[in-house]
Design a protein around this nucleic acid. Structure first.
Length: 549
RNA sequence: GCCUCCUUAGCUCAGCGGAUUAGAGCGCUUGUCUUCGGAACAAGAGGUCGUAGGUUCGAAUCCUACAGGGGGCACCA
């Protein structure tokens, strides 16, 4: 609806002043009308005329129309639009017409990259949910979306874990499965990390193991590695599955490493240079910092692997128009450097690549970690939220659905990019502004609709009462909200919208009857659209909307 | 030290150039309570939007400085 009004204003401004203007229409407070435009103020400098005059001239020009019931100009020069009730009722039917502005585009999106031999932590859950939701939104805009996962299956962190496993087993493989089964992956890695930093012999050994892993030249290391990798993936897949996240394709650092190395070596000295035996990129020339791409022992770092990954991705999906990578904000600076280097190697590829980051996730209480001395992992979070749902919704048949709503909504409702202070007990909300609240609102609407025998969509009255109108206006916002949230990569806007919508309906529902009311047919039509929008909105967030709870 | 992000009610967050009282959830106080599903609704208390300047017709929103906090700064990922 917003874009329709936008067009009206644009054509008027063009015919009146010969200027083309960008967007100026925004939703406004109820007391002013439905929409407002500040276009007159924007034009005042250009035209050198008072904004009030311009505004009046513009509304005079649109006076004859069948869209607005009221047009007026206020104070400094706002134009306020009130849409006819008939128009609102008509556009109820159009709420599922989402703009396919990405049709014919292929978009790659990479998110939630846990590393084998390390624990999947809260940040991975966060990244995965954001990425998965963004992927869903992009799909709704018509794009052919490929969901990618990238996992660091080689590198020092793996060697550190394997060193500890090996020492624990005294480098004898009998009982290897039990060893893995009885310890968390994080335990091995953390111990390896400690040994690497505190013990010179261990450090040397770990570096040796790192070489073994790359070259696959040590049978025992291979076996510890293979089983550990397998177990890691099984556990990750389980957790991803629990939170409703999936991937079309997985990439591994063992693949990207060689390609990255070649790419870097081929671009010496054009892009990279040698320094102290390492191959580096001098980021200072771009206002950034220097990073090592190949270390002095000849191993590729994360940076070179990232370049290799880019090549791999575009080799698999040569038609891809955009490649999005989602990580935590702590990698912002790193990505700037890698992308700057990539821009020098292949400007086109670099241009297609977008790095999005979300903020740092910290636990408030710290109870969870200090008490047991263990890190609070992604799997821990999943099981704790399951427990909370089980407790509160004892008799529900849709606990799994409620779980998904509670968990996903918690991470999605906040703007991407800002830090999250997380407290399991408080952050995972089951009431108020929460996933389950929306599900409940949906189930309620379903229940009303089920009671109505048959919905007669023909209703004579095409005017809306105040309460009805508020609701309808909100429902009609849906396509605009989705469009904006997708274009700006801000899924939280959908959460905010759905919550406001549900509140609007609950408030309406409290004051007005639907069934057996003289205005039943109209109200049922509104309730149906409301239910559809809620359902579709939740679907885009990958939150199920059961019909009863 | 350099770079970067952040600072809005007791807590967690929306608002990100607009229109006399800056919004929500939780928590707190009070009411609705044989209900088209109360997992709900209605009302109240609670904020000089980190500080100081600047730009603008107009600033929580843009710019600058400062303070406080997070993150990053060569062989980790």
């Amino acid at each position: 609806m917003k874009s329709d009004i936008e067009k009206v204003v644009q054509t008027v401004c063009e015919s009146l002043y010969g200027v083309s203007i960008s967007s100026s229409i925004v939703r406004t407070e109820k007391k002013f009308g439905d929409f407002s435009s500040n276009i007159a103020m924007q034009l005042t400098k250009q035209l050198k005329r008072p904004p009030m005059d311009i505004a009046k001239e513009i509304i005079h020009e649109i006076e004859d129309n069948n869209i607005f019931s009221k047009l007026d100009v206020l104070k400094p020069g706002f134009i306020n639009f009130t849409v006819k009730d008939v128009m609102l009722i008509e556009s109820l039917k159009l709420t599922n017409d989402l703009q396919k502005f990405n049709s014919s585009k292929q978009i790659l999106i990479e998110y939630g990259d846990p590393n084998p031999f390390k624990e999947m932590h809260l940040g991975h859950i966060y990244t995965a949910i954001i990425g998965d939701t963004l992927a869903s939104l992009l799909e709704s805009s018509g794009a052919d979306v490929k969901r990618l996962c990238y996992q660091g299956d080689v590198g020092l962190h793996v060697a550190k874990a394997i060193y500890v496993v090996g020492e624990y087993m005294k480098w004898n493989l009998d009982g290897l499965e039990e060893a893995y089964a009885s310890h968390s992956l994080g335990y091995f890695y953390a111990s390896g990390e400690k040994a690497y930093n505190e013990n010179e012999t261990a450090k040397t050994k770990i570096q040796g193991i790192n070489q073994n892993i790359y070259k696959k030249d040590n049978d025992i290391v291979n076996k510890i590695y293979d089983l550990g990798k397998k177990i890691s993936y099984e556990r990750f897949d389980k957790t991803f599955d629990d939170i409703g996240v999936y991937f079309d394709k997985k990439y591994f650092e063992s693949e990207s490493s060689k390609i990255g190395e070649k790419l870097v070596r081929d671009n010496i000295p054009k892009v990279f240079e040698k320094s102290d035996g390492a191959v580096i990129y001098r980021g200072e020339k771009d206002g950034l910092h220097t990073r090592v791409f190949i270390n002095s022992r000849g191993f590729t770092t994360y940076d070179a692997k990232e370049l290799g990954l880019t090549v791999l991705k575009h080799g698999d999906f040569p038609k891809a128009d955009i490649s999005i990578i989602i990580t935590a904000a702590e990698q912002d600076e790193y990505f700037k450097v890698v992308l700057a280097a990539l821009a020098k190697i292949d400007p086109k590829l670099a241009q297609k690549t977008i790095h999005l980051s979300h903020g740092f996730l910290s636990l408030t209480s710290g109870k969870m970690s200090s008490r047991t001395g263990k890190v609070f992992t992604g799997a821990d979070l999943v099981s704790q939220v399951h427990q909370m749902v089980d407790l509160k919704y004892k008799d529900s048949k849709v606990k799994k659905e409620i779980f998904l709503a509670a968990l996903r909504y918690t991470f999605l409702r906040q703007r991407i990019g800002i830090d999250i202070v997380f407290d399991v007990e408080q952050s995972i909300a089951l009431e108020g502004n929460s996933g389950p609240y929306l599900q409940y609102a949906h189930a309620r609407a379903c229940s009303i609709l089920a009671k109505a025998k048959n919905i007669d969509t023909k209703f004579g009255d095409k005017t809306l009462q105040s309460d009805e109108r508020d609701l309808v206006v909100k429902i009609c916002d849906f396509p605009d909200v989705i469009l904006e949230a997708t274009k700006l990569y801000l899924p939280h806007q959908i959460c905010t919208y759905l919550f406001e919508l549900a509140k609007e309906f609950n408030s309406f529902y409290e004051k007005n009857r639907v069934i057996d009311d003289p205005r039943m047919n109209l109200r049922l039509a509104i309730a149906r659209s409301y239910k559809d929008v809620l359902e579709e909105g939740l679907r885009l967030l990958h939150i199920p909307s059961p019909e009863s709870m």
